[in-house]
Simulated scan of single mutants.
Amino acid sequence: MPVEKPKPRYKQIADHLREGILSGTYPAGQPLPSEESLAKQYGVTRPTVRQGIAELRAAGLVEVMMGRGMFVRSPHSRPSLTRPRGVRREPDGRYVEADGLRWDDAEEPVATRTDAPLALADLLRIPPGEPMYTYDALQTADRGRLRQLRRTYVPFSVLLGTKFEEQAPPPAPHLYSALAELGHELHFTEYVRTRMPLPDQAQALRLPDGVPMFQILRVTLSADDKPLALEEFHLPGDDLELSYPL
């Protein structure tokens, strides 16, 4: 019978605090002891405590409020941020996000040529390996407090016979107006899931260890349901809920 390896200290701390939260020792809405106090209590460093707290944040048991400390989250509490999802068209023809936020690009997105991987080719209904224009952007809102990664894909085949056959189309959301000017009546479908971020994604989104992110794939479709473009959004998943009108 194999001998079980002892748990890392941060997991032991997370398990002990989780037990205290579920038993009511730390009531919902009340603050947890500070990192410094917990480090002294468990005889570890503050980064070790922080890693344990990240496990509890990922489990939805703890929320960290900037400048106020760490608080036990009720299983019935609402996230601090709700983001309406969707796209609407303004009277002047512009397409805007339903969340009403103004998103600024950290750097001007530049078009690169990529080949469609199998999973995206399936959503776009194009052959795997078909060339696409691709844009990458780190976007911020609310004076940098909110962050998201946004990638836009446009298959070359969608642009055949248009002015964009020789020049790259604009990235979304300006892409929507460009497609509408080509005569397309647009609608959208989104696919949502959560997963753990890659290291560069965690750094860009400023996610602590153990915190997941939302991955949203938005497909732009024509009136006859032909996919025209695809966007990939990555959003922090620690204190955010998404809302959709039905």
Rank of each mutant, 00 (worst) to 15 (best):
R145Q: 14
A28I: 03
L81H: 04
R143H: 13
A141G: 09
Y26E: 08
D224L: 09
A223R: 15
P208Q: 12
T220Q: 01
V87N: 01
Y244M: 01
I21R: 02
A121K: 10
V44R: 05
A98K: 03
T189G: 00
P245R: 14
R143S: 13
R57H: 03
P6E: 10
D238W: 12
G129E: 11
A121L: 05
E97N: 05
F71G: 06
D136I: 08
Q148P: 01
Q203N: 12
D115H: 13
L217R: 11
Y95E: 02
S80C: 01
L228F: 08
L228E: 09
E231V: 03
Y95W: 14
E241N: 09
V211H: 08
E231A: 00
D239E: 10
G237K: 07
L101Y: 03
S34E: 11
P169F: 04
A204M: 09
R78I: 01
L198M: 14
E4Q: 07
I216V: 15
G60Y: 05
E63M: 12
T162L: 08
M66C: 00
Q203L: 15
R150N: 00
L101S: 06
L207V: 09
G60Q: 03
V192N: 02
L149P: 03
P33T: 04
G100I: 10
P117G: 07
A106R: 15
R9K: 14
H174V: 06
Y95Q: 00
P127F: 09
D15M: 11
I13K: 06
M65T: 13
M196R: 14
D136Y: 15
P27R: 11
P27L: 04
H234C: 13
P117M: 12
A168S: 14
R50Q: 14
L230E: 01
R193L: 13
P79F: 12
R78K: 14
V96N: 01
A39Q: 03
Q201L: 07
V96I: 15
W103Y: 00
V3N: 06
G24M: 06
A59Q: 15
P227D: 10
W103E: 02
Q30N: 07
P173G: 05
S74W: 05
V158T: 15
D239F: 08
L149I: 14
Y133S: 03
T48W: 08
R193W: 07
L198P: 00
D142S: 14
E108S: 14
R68S: 10
G86E: 02
A111F: 03
R150L: 05
P169T: 04
P84E: 00
V3L: 12
D105C: 14
A180H: 05
A202P: 07
A137I: 13
P131G: 13
K7V: 06
R195A: 06
L56C: 08
P128F: 11
A202D: 05
E181P: 03
Q167P: 01
S23C: 07
F214I: 02
L120S: 01
P128T: 13
L179M: 07
D224M: 10
V110W: 10
E108P: 06
K40A: 14
